[in-house]
Nucleic acid binder design. Structure first.
Length: 286
DNA sequence: CCACAGGACGGCT
DNA sequence: AGCCGTCCTGTG
């Protein structure tokens, strides 16, 4: 059924939320709004003045779905104020990406999406995920258009490596195939992850094929696991951390260990959010 | 045609 | 433990 839900949040900018690199299934419409799939629902998010308007073909209560997914019960103003005190670089990056909220994305979907993200760029990642959903997910209609749910582990259980390859996954085909099997046979039990401390949850995720340190940290931060005490280090984060704080002539000579240690001491339990502001700022203004 | 961009992984020291 | 070549596809 088609539902609407309207709020006036202090912190909520469409471009900041959907373009900061945390998600791959949201597409911008001609009117500036975004449409995407959350679980079994299709949602369109628009902003008019201070109003954020959610409309969707929803499998449940739209208010519950959006409150959870968009992390609406967290006080980002307070978090921004705390982070802004750390230094002026962080303050500037927060001013740039002031409308960011970290999404609560389905854990399985986040795992598969970020395995696909390895050694890959955003347009291609989005294309692969779209083809995966169209081929193996369920169709939902909204505003006269077809959308597709992200396929479940069960829906991928009989897909061969060759079929994955034909969707454009490249060398990631085996990783998707193996990880699907490992999750289905509970070699890694996703249900148990949410109760584990961050370091142990990371160890579990690292057992999955195609999940290394960077992907594991993205999963911990951008999924319903919602851990802010991780600091995913990719080329852009390395670049910005070196430029601002480490100042090595060759950024490639800076070890991940050194960056990680700096993030721990400087940003502490809020390092995941700090990473998002710094990453988005550096990427968009590069 | 080539250079480059983007992480995991396995083999090597 | 750290270093490095390979995996694949799209872009300039």
């Amino acid at each position: 059924m088609i539902d609407t839900y309207i709020i006036k949040p202090d912190i909520f900018e469409l471009d900041d939320i959907f373009e900061c690199g945390q998600c791959f299934r949201w597409n911008k419409e001609d009117d500036g709004s975004y449409t995407g799939v959350i679980g079994d629902s299709v949602i369109n998010v628009a902003k008019k003045g201070n109003d954020v308007i959610f409309k969707g073909n929803c499998s449940g209560d739209i208010k519950t779905i959006c409150t959870d997914y968009f992390d609406l019960n967290r006080d980002y103003t307070k978090l921004q104020n705390e982070l802004s005190k750390i230094d002026n670089y962080l303050k500037e990056s927060i001013e740039y990406g002031k409308g960011i909220r970290i999404l609560n994305q389905n854990l399985w979907e986040t795992i598969i999406s970020f395995i696909i993200s390895a050694n890959n760029n955003i347009p291609r990642i989005k294309g692969i995920i779209e083809r995966l959903s169209k081929t193996y997910g369920k169709r939902i209609e909204f505003n006269g258009k077809n959308y597709y749910t992200f396929p479940t582990a069960d829906e991928l259980s009989n897909v061969s490596i060759e079929e994955f390859r034909s969707l454009g996954l490249g060398f990631r085909d085996v990783r998707l195939y193996e990880t699907t099997k490992m999750i289905l046979n509970k070699e890694v039990d996703l249900e148990k992850l949410k109760d584990l401390p961050t370091n142990l949850a990371r160890e579990e995720l690292l057992k999955l094929s195609g999940v290394g340190p960077k992907v594991a940290d993205c999963i911990l931060l951008f999924s319903t696991l919602k851990r802010f005490d991780v600091f995913p280090i990719d080329v852009w984060v390395r670049r910005v951390m070196n430029e601002l704080y480490i100042k090595n002539e060759d950024e490639n000579k800076v070890s991940k260990k050194e960056i990680q240690k700096l993030a721990d001491t400087k940003f502490g339990s809020m390092q995941g959010l700090a990473q998002q502001y710094l990453f988005y700022w550096k990427r968009e203004t590069a």
